[in-house]
Amino acid sequence: MLAPGALTTIGFDADDTLWQNEQFFRSSERHFADLLAPYADVPDLSGRLLAVEKRNLDLYGFGIKGFTLSLVETAVEVTEGRVPASIIADILAAGREMLRHPVETLPHVTQTLEALSDAYRLVLITKGDLFDQERKLAQSGLGDFFDAVEIVSNKDKATYETIFRRHGDGAERAMMIGNSLKSDVVPALEAGSWGVFVPHELTWVLEHVDAPVEEPRFRQINHLGELLPLLGDLA
């Protein structure tokens, strides 16, 4: 019989927790600004793009395809419809390049997953485009470490309650690890899980919230190499 509160299941975010992601969005945004420079003088182009992305989230969801569509819409908006078709083609080409970019796993990921895979049920919990997330997982070579993979449209309390009930012994015996306080940590804590924040130097502004430092099940580590010692302290 399990001891009260014993941890049996660990969930991992994917983008910018297991592999690089946001840096490719930032690079594409800089390229976008260069493409538009001859056609529009927009002091806060990033702010205009962010407003369009926020407006489109409910329609397109998270991921590269929605981002690319938001780039096109922003280009049309800020140029008042004058953007040439050639620039639209360049934006679409940049989106395709993002979808083809090789996966770059982050430090300590493979060793940590290998060490944990025999002792815990490991679940990959990621949001975004289904095809793209499946592609990245396949290219990463990490798929065999996971007992289950959940690609979801959103991450909230109900998401974690459902997933940790389906693939584990309930949220109370689970831990969620990720680089987003808003998506990975706070809703997992609300569900009753442990929540471990692993900051990444680049995190999308819409994922920023205050750290829940008063929550007894909240922890923060600098990188995944510190996860095994943390689990040892909690045992």
Rank of each mutant, 00 (worst) to 15 (best):
F25G: 01
Q133M: 10
K54M: 11
D34E: 14
L7C: 11
D233M: 09
D118W: 08
T126Q: 03
E77N: 05
L116G: 03
R96N: 09
L124F: 10
Y60N: 10
L122V: 11
I163D: 01
V78L: 12
L69F: 13
V78F: 11
A148F: 06
T110S: 12
F131A: 15
G81K: 09
Q20E: 15
G195M: 13
A93F: 05
P107N: 10
W19G: 02
D233I: 02
W204L: 11
V205A: 15
L142C: 08
V209H: 03
S46R: 15
A138E: 10
Q20P: 01
V213C: 10
G232C: 06
L122K: 04
G192F: 09
E80Q: 13
I10D: 01
E150P: 03
F197L: 10
G192D: 06
A174Y: 00
F145S: 04
E226H: 15
K136L: 06
W19C: 03
E22T: 11
V186A: 15
V123P: 00
T68F: 10
S180M: 12
D147E: 07
A85P: 02
F146P: 00
E134G: 04
Y160C: 00
K65M: 14
F24K: 02
S46N: 13
P212Y: 02
L202Q: 15
L2D: 03
T126M: 07
R82A: 15
G66S: 08
V103W: 10
